[in-house]
C-alpha cells in the first residue's frame, strides 16, 4: 500500500507493556539477610538473596525487555510496607539521547528507589502511624497502580501494546489484604491482563498462585535464587504471543483458600453471608459488611471443599481444603 497506512503495520501483537512490581519490603530483605548471615557458612547459599543481588538481576531484565522490541515499554513499581510508587517508566524518557543508555537507566532506577524508601519510611513514622501494620508488602496497592497505569495506556492510544504484570514478591502474603488483592486479580482478569509471579520468599504465595491461575499468567518459585536472571529471562521475558507456542512451567497445585473478613485469617472452611458473600471463620449474629441480622444462626451457609471449580463469576470465594 502507501506510506499513509504504514503505521497500521505495527502489529500490537509484538509490542509488550510490562509492569514489574518489585517487592521493596525492608523487613523482609533485612531479616532474610540476617537469616542468611546466621547460616552463611551452611549449605544453603541459594535460598536467600540480598537486595543488592536482586537489583543486579532485575535491572538487566528490564533492559533486556526493552531490547526485545524497540516499542516495548517497561514500568517499574516498588511495593513498600506503607506505600507504593512508580520508580521507572521507559516511556517517560522518550526520545532524549540520555534516556537510552543503560547506565543512565540504572542510576535513575537506583535514585528513585532511594527516594521511595525514604518516603516509605517517613510515612511509617507519620503521626497516625499504625504500629507495625505488619510485615507484608502492599501487594494490593501495587497491583492497583499497575492496573490503573495499563488502563491509562489503553485509553490514551488506539493501538495498545499487549500488557502484562510481573510480580517479584519476597515477603509473605498479608491476609488482611485478601479482598483488595482478589478484587485487583478479578479486574486484571476482566481486562485480560496476565499476572506473572516470581516468588522469592520461603513459602509459596497463595495470592499470587491464585492471581496467575485466574489471569492465565505464570507462577514460579525459583529454586536457585542466584540464577534469578536466568529464570526471569527464560520464563517471564516471553511475550504473550510467543507463549502460545511455548511450554512454560505450570504449578502443581493452587492454594485456593480465602481469608475471612473478621480476623483476616486464611481458612479452609467457613461461613458465607447469604446476601453479600462475606466470609467468616465463625458464627456471627450479624454480618459486619451488609448488616444482615441472622434470625437463625444457620442462615450462614457453610461451604467446604468446593475445590477447583472453574471461575465462572467475576467474584467468587472458593474454600479449599488442602487434603
Amino acid at each position: 500500500m502507501n506510506a499513509a497506512s504504514a503505521p497500521s503495520k505495527l502489529y500490537s501483537d509484538d509490542v509488550s507493556l510490562i509492569v514489574v512490581l518489585l517487592d521493596a519490603n525492608p523487613f523482609f530483605w533485612a531479616s532474610s539477610a540476617a537469616a542468611a548471615g546466621d547460616s552463611a557458612s551452611s549449605h544453603h547459599p541459594t535460598t536467600t538473596l540480598p537486595f543488592s543481588k536482586l537489583l543486579n538481576h532485575v535491572i538487566p531484565l528490564l533492559n533486556s525487555l526493552l531490547l526485545l522490541n524497540q516499542f516495548n515499554q517497561v514500568v517499574l513499581v516498588a511495593t513498600g510496607v506503607n506505600s507504593c510508587g512508580y520508580i521507572y517508566d521507559s516511556g517517560d524518557g522518550g526520545g532524549g539521547s540520555a534516556g537510552g543508555s543503560v547506565p543512565a537507566i540504572c542510576s535513575e532506577i537506583l535514585r528513585r528507589l532511594e527516594e521511595f524508601v525514604v518516603k516509605d519510611r517517613l510515612q511509617g513514622k507519620g503521626p497516625d502511624k499504625v504500629v507495625a501494620t505488619g510485615v507484608s508488602s502492599l501487594l494490593s496497592g501495587s497491583l492497583s497502580l499497575a492496573l490503573c497505569y495499563i488502563q491509562r495506556v489503553f485509553r490514551s492510544r488506539a493501538r495498545h501494546p499487549q500488557p502484562r504484570i510481573l510480580c517479584l514478591q519476597g515477603s509473605p502474603d498479608g491476609p488482611e489484604q485478601y479482598v483488595a488483592v482478589m478484587n485487583a486479580i478479578f479486574s486484571a482478569q476482566r481486562s485480560m491482563i496476565p499476572i506473572d509471579s516470581c516468588v522469592m520468599g520461603v513459602q509459596h504465595s497463595a495470592f499470587l498462585q491464585q492471581a496467575s491461575y485466574i489471569t492465565g499468567g505464570v507462577y514460579l518459585k525459583p529454586q536457585q535464587l542466584d540464577g534469578l536472571f536466568q529464570y526471569l529471562s527464560a520464563v517471564f521475558a516471553t511475550d504473550l504471543q510467543s507463549r502460545n507456542f511455548l511450554q512454560l512451567p505450570k504449578p502443581a497445585g493452587v492454594d485456593f483458600r480465602a481469608s475471612c473478613f473478621c480476623h483476616k485469617k486464611t481458612i479452609d472452611m467457613g461461613y458465607v453471608c447469604s446476601v453479600c458473600l462475606s466470609i467468616f471463620c465463625k458464627h456471627h449474629k450479624k454480618c459486619s459488611t451488609c448488616g444482615l441480622v441472622l434470625i437463625y444462626a444457620n442462615k450462614f451457609h457453610s461451604y467446604s471443599n468446593s475445590k477447583r471449580k472453574p471461575f465462572k463469576y467475576d467474584f467468587c470465594f472458593f474454600f479449599y481444603k488442602p487434603h
Binding site: P26, W29, A30, S31, S32, A34, F51, V117
Partner: peptide, 17 residues
C-alpha cells in the same frame, strides 16, 4: 524468618543495599 527487627535497622539495611 524473624521479623523482630527495628524499623530503623530494616530501612537502613535497604538503603545500604
Amino acid at each position: 524468618i524473624d521479623y523482630n527487627l527495628n524499623t530503623e535497622e530494616a530501612y537502613s539495611y535497604l538503603m545500604h543495599q
